[in-house]
Amino acid sequence: MVTTSTTPAASAAQRGPQRLGLIAAVVLIAVSIALPFVPPFTGQDWQRYLVGAALIAASAVAFDFTAGYIDIVNFGFAAFMGLGGYTSAILVNTYGISPWLGFPLGALTAGILGLLTGLLTLRLRGIYAAVMTWFVALALLGLARNLTDVTRGPLGLAVSPLLATNDNLPYYYVMLGILIATLVVLTLVIRSRVGLAFRAIGQNLQAARASGINPTVFLVANFTISCAFAGVFGVFYAHYYGILTPDVMGTSHTIEILAIAYIGGRGSLWGPAVIAFPMYIAVQLLKVQLSSQPALYLVIYGLLLILVMLYRPDGAAGVIRSLGHRLDRRPKSGAGPAGASATPTPGATA
């Protein structure tokens, strides 16, 4: 299935960075598992930051799956999350089903609305498609505000917790598991034949068509997958924070996800996941300091976004990648071309 896999003739230049990437991934996962036991992350406040960071990391990965590959910006991402969350919350509250069942159901409703939105909008290109996704989001937001019989509107809907504990640590591991599963699944899709079509469409639509790709099929498929994942994250959000208000669906929430996805590096998937932790936590600490200006964090995201666009369009992933290449090239004194792939140094993740 892996169309981009290396061939013996040309693998020498590729294998080194790939091996290095795998090692970095294992180290990062180990670090994220151990993190809650390292001060200051042992405190409940800090662990709540970690849960939020893992949640926004997963969101940014699924956002990048669409923005970074088929070049469609989903301005309704947070609304699809909210739809998943409300679906689960209402079903759990009404029928008393397990919150865990909410995950597939939330994914289903968000995925179906994603499919319909995609069919409706993805014949349009660029900004038009983005604007249409935004309209859908505003419509959903309006519904959540006004269908007070089911959502209680701005009063907020109380949601039963996912776990029978107030401790943040188990929630962190649940969300970390969701994040890792999201990364693995979406990376496998991108590396498959289907992913090749996504990339082709995003990089040159006319050439993709001339190569036999029906863009609508793949655009809608990509958008639907991304929205279904958004639904899953929304379900976690609802059953973790315990209350849902229509604000969850707001555009500023989408912008936060967009900023982290772009700063992390478009079209990499892992870049947004890696950058989400330091960025989100830094912004939370800043929010505490600047509680008199509650919207200031959006300005900070905006400034960072502009800097990335100007100086590093490939984001943090690009920076890390070029550092990796340098690390990979340096210890080349080994035995021939095979030696290069056998000597990646640890510490590539710092």
Binding site: R193, L196, A197, A200, Q203, N204, A207, S211
Partner: peptide
């Protein structure tokens, strides 16, 4: 195309693989 239209963020091999995968 009159002005070539590559997929710029792919390797040369991947560029060709797109058409081999999805063309006739």
């Amino acid at each position: 195309f009159q002005i070539p239209r590559p997929f710029p963020r792919m390797t040369a091999l991947e560029n060709v693989a797109v058409s081999a995968s999805f063309g006739g």
